[in-house]
Design a protein around this nucleic acid. Structure first.
Lengths: 336, 336
DNA sequence: CTGAAAGCGCTAACAC
DNA sequence: GTGTTAGCGCTTTCAG
């Protein structure tokens, strides 16, 4: 069995309270401090955070609930968050709900059972219902990548409409008129914004929008794969395609490679999110990139603030942090 | 405040022991069971795992300590592990030590402080010293990707020499003689095996080995990037290069794209580990692929077994699980 | 600054 | 099958 605080008291002759005070940074007579430190050394004592958690009702642990751990966006963000949290002595317990709403709700209960001090999540579900139990418990919540419509949560996300608008605008500036978009369907929060940006850009340039050029579907590699092929098989095919998400970009690139569709010769494309790909794919892809570091940092910071806050912080307004994407230049867009 | 077991006793008139027994799956009179379930429902009761952890001395949490969370190998493995553990009601607390030995040791203490029931780790350090504190506590340990030389740990890893040997053999069979390898230096466990496999394959084919064709360095993108350029600038350059790790493969591909070195026309290459790249890069890369799913699964399974085991399991021999890589065919190797 | 004592929420003998 | 009673290891008043 590991040494306990009690072993320290025995060895030093001091009381529980004194040792505990030392452990928590309180003032102790130099003589006693030395004695305690010596005992800790000898006994290899380490605070039992579980016991401390029971006593303080704070576990120094935050839950991170995500759709897919094995995806660049998620893992980059988690890596950064974990780093920042641990620097402040918080542990990170991760849950991957694999895009399943049921698992997502279970994960929340699971985390709550573990009494995490807060939860950072990239929501899967369309509704915020699954968060109710956390709200009731008063567990601080920070959402990433989306806000719910009632705006009642701390959240960190990017301006999706703007991101999309800028990408499409770039295509328009290069002389494209027949511009397609491959995107998620309206069930996805991010997809809604990106679709909206597409419409905005087209409208501002006074270009007509054709339904056949709008390929909605799941945010999966297969959707990108299929959609680009369908687009390229049309008799009146688009001259440019905006691949409005990471998986879609992957799928489209794979399909183009397989079928010998060349970019930008056969079609101009702008992808989304994968910096790695942009370095490695030739010709280089134009990409809309999200500020992942900033997103993670903002989320961790927000959480840390809530965690440090006094009780009345519950009353503080939820903070919505809106960040902006940028466009990484490549060679995948041709001027017409 | 959340409801406690005590609230349940008050509401049902039953005792602590009975309710606790119910909670832990014991037998209770149907009438009482109903009463308890009703109370749980009404009070939104959820077991406080922290308190339970204190009482049982088991937290139902395992630590996963890794070098870089935001890397395909690590995140794929964690995703799978997390999935399997949670299915058995274990939480996963992750720590990323960013390849830093000091942080790695701190992370172990951190996890131990949180009283995780076990630790799964992809070691960074060359020595197993940092694991001592865990060993002393008797915390089950499972290593991934490497074993320490004394063979005294449960570990799951692949046959690196074989992986490398097969890759080089393939190149030799295609008629290559001047074969280079870009790899990590001997400080890395995996690099040692892969280098050994290279030597074995060359020796078996009775081919001479030239020091200039062996590019050792850090397991970083930059090493792959620089090394391939150096190799290609030699007057007597190799006709084939084995890129013996994920980052190295990335770097080499980037460099080749930038400098216009074509594969397999200018040089034949076999990469390592990145399935994603192999789909997306054109021409397709030959790749040595590790069975990530199996690795993760074996590690989680091993851990779960240790966790379920009775005390005497300490005496059981450490298990070393050796898995095998395979070669994914591509178009990046030319027959000479 | 230090000590005594109560208690965080749960489990686990041990009696009944 | 159920109740009683101790703790698990720590923090935290409250006195002194």
């Amino acid at each position: 069995m590991a040494a306990t605080i009690r072993d320290i008291t025995k060895m030093t002759g001091l009381s529980l309270a004194t040792v505990s005070k030392y452990l928590n940074g309180g003032n102790v007579l130099p003589k006693n401090r030395l004695a305690i430190e010596h005992a800790i050394e000898v006994l290899h004592y380490e605070v039992n955070e579980v016991a401390r958690g029971l006593a303080t009702n704070r576990t120094k642990t935050v839950g991170v609930l995500i759709q897919k751990l094995d995806n660049v966006f998620a893992s980059t963000i988690i890596a950064k968050i974990e780093d920042m949290l641990r620097a402040r002595d918080y542990g990170t317990i991760v849950c991957d709900c694999r895009g399943d709403e049921k698992l997502e709700e279970e994960a929340i209960r699971f985390l709550l059972g573990k009494r995490v001090d807060g939860i950072i999540t990239i929501p899967t579900s369309r509704s915020s219902a699954y968060l109710q139990s956390a709200i009731q418990r008063g567990t601080p919540l920070v959402l990433i990548d989306r806000a719910f419509d009632d705006g009642s949560f701390d959240s960190v996300y990017v301006d999706n409409a703007e991101a999309s608008r800028e990408a499409v605008r770039l295509l328009i500036e290069k002389g494209h008129k027949k511009i397609a978009i491959i995107c998620g369907d309206e069930g996805y929060y991010t997809a809604r914004g990106r679709l909206e940006g597409y419409f905005q850009a087209m409208a501002r340039a006074d270009l007509p929008v054709y339904a056949k050029y709008i390929k909605k579907g799941d945010l999966e590699v297969s959707h990108g794969y299929n959609a680009i092929r369908e687009l390229m098989e049309m008799e009146d095919r688009p001259t440019a395609v905006f691949l409005s998400n990471y998986e879609i970009t992957m799928g489209a690139v794979i399909a183009m490679n397989e079928t010998g569709i060349r970019f930008p010769e056969d079609v101009s494309v702008i992808g989304f999110d994968n910096l790695l790909l942009s370095q490695v794919i030739r010709p280089r892809l134009y990409m809309v990139v999200q500020p992942m570091e900033e997103i993670a940092q903002a989320a961790a910071k927000l959480m840390l603030e809530r965690l440090a806050g006094k009780d009345p912080d519950r009353e503080k307004e939820p903070k919505q942090i809106l960040l902006h994407t940028s466009i990484l230049e490549g060679e995948s867009v041709r001027a017409l």
